[in-house]
């Protein structure tokens, strides 16, 4: 039907990825990968896992092209104490790795993974305070 074709062609990345349900499915997988990665887990304070998971969810929602209030200045401020702890490009790369692996695990097609990765990549300067 022409109508459904039209819908498919105008779907946003977020819709194509499966919206909030997809983010929910991704959060636990992604957070587990991050916590078990010795290269970066010291940056993820796990004293309050719920709050930490809420932040991961916000990050993934943004990377999925979903509704967000992304603000470069906030992102800088939020990560400034981590930069002081030594957060650098290699750690950002590790997170990007886990984002890709999470989406692969969820059987997301490569072209959509690439789009999500590009969005996440766009935060690099702000996260690293460059």
């Amino acid at each position: 039907m022409s109508e459904s074709q039209e819908t498919a062609s105008t779907q946003t990345l977020y819709e194509q990825l499966g919206g909030e349900a997809a983010v929910d499915a991704a959060v636990d997988i992604f957070y587990r990968k991050v916590l078990s990665d010795y290269r970066i887990n010291r940056f993820f304070d796990n004293s309050d896992m719920e709050q930490q998971a809420a932040k991961q969810k916000a990050f993934l929602t943004m990377a999925f092209g979903g509704p967000n209030n992304y603000n470069g200045t906030d992102m800088r401020n939020a990560h400034a104490h981590l930069v002081k702890m030594g957060l650098n490009a290699s750690h950002f790369d590790a997170v990007m790795e886990h984002l890709g692996a999470t989406l692969t695990e969820l059987n997301v097609p490569p072209e959509l993974i690439a789009q999500a990765a590009a969005i996440a990549e766009s935060t690099r300067k702000d996260v690293l305070g460059k």
């Binding site: 636990d28 957070y31 587990r32 916590l35 078990s36 004293s47 896992m49 998971a53």
Partner: peptide, 18 residues
Amino acid sequence: INQAKKTAFMKGASINDI
């Protein structure tokens, strides 16, 4: 609790289910 919460999560429990 701190220990077990993390272990349970790593063993597959969803954070919302702990």
